[in-house]
Amino acid sequence: MTIMAKSKPTILNTLIPYVAAILIALAAVGVFIALMGFDVLKAYYTILFTSFRTPNGFIQTLLKFIPLVLQAYAFTVPLAAGKFNIGGEGQLIVGAIGAAAVGILLPDLPPLLLIPLVLLGGIVAGALWGFIPGWLLYKFNINEILTTVLLNFVSFALINYVATGPWRDPAAGHPTTIPIGRGGYLPLLVDNPPLHAGIIIALLVAVAVYFYTTRSTAGYELVATGANPRAAGVFGINVKYMFVLSIVIAGGIGGLSGAIEVSGVQHRLIEGLQHNFLVLGLIIGLIAKGNNMAVPFVAFFIAVLEVGASAMQRTLMIPVEMVFIVEALVLLFVLLSDVVRRK
């Protein structure tokens, strides 16, 4: 894929286009916000600094960061092999179903057993969901973009089915299951405002992905496959197998993000728990140009914007989607910066 970084630029050289892209995107949307009659400076102050003004804001940002960074990896890991996984949303949902199922079926286990089992339930369910498009690609050569996307829509119906089935919480108005066993709740690192241990898991995944893709033989085969499938095949790498593996790993990571939503945040299965994490994850992965080192930093930046956007909607009545446009434009300008450099 051409979007992978090729040369080894200095940190400064890498940062300049990003800063420029952010400034241009903010300026472009700023004009729009001003034309709508809102206070631009107040809006941007809220967007950029809500995360850093109060402990609560910072913890909200970390909580947002967890699913976003995992969704981004669910996209960038197959991207390293040259495959587009647009199915992180479905993998999250099915992972959440798997995690909730374990937590509801084994409610009395102690935390030491139940937490790992709940997380594992999510990982396995997500990996299986990722295996379907992987297998279709392997066996029938079907474009993975389409199958992963279409399976998202299947998962929407599936979560509705589970959340309104035998495990339904009759007291809830919205499709919701009964809570998982107490032992399945992720422990809190900070009590008030609550920050659950999912942040540690997310950081561990970040380290693992980094080592896998840059420091291991298996990861080298993955990257080699993406860089030049034909050459990789000549050197004895089973390219088709690498494609499947990359989507299955992505499914596992996506499933884990669902499991963390269940065991850390909701403590039950709720329809809609996926929010817009998929699209933001894709944006993060693309802004990072598939570079797994850069993903956590970009994810943190997007988490800051998202938390700021909610605050802006509450206090200034500017819709949160305004910030989504900023994010999409940052992506576009970052991509454009490559063109500028090429010239």
Partner: peptide
């Protein structure tokens, strides 16, 4: 294509 998809959804 994906970037345009995001912009379309957002708008």
């Amino acid at each position: 294509g994906l970037a345009l998809f995001f912009i379309g959804v957002g708008l």
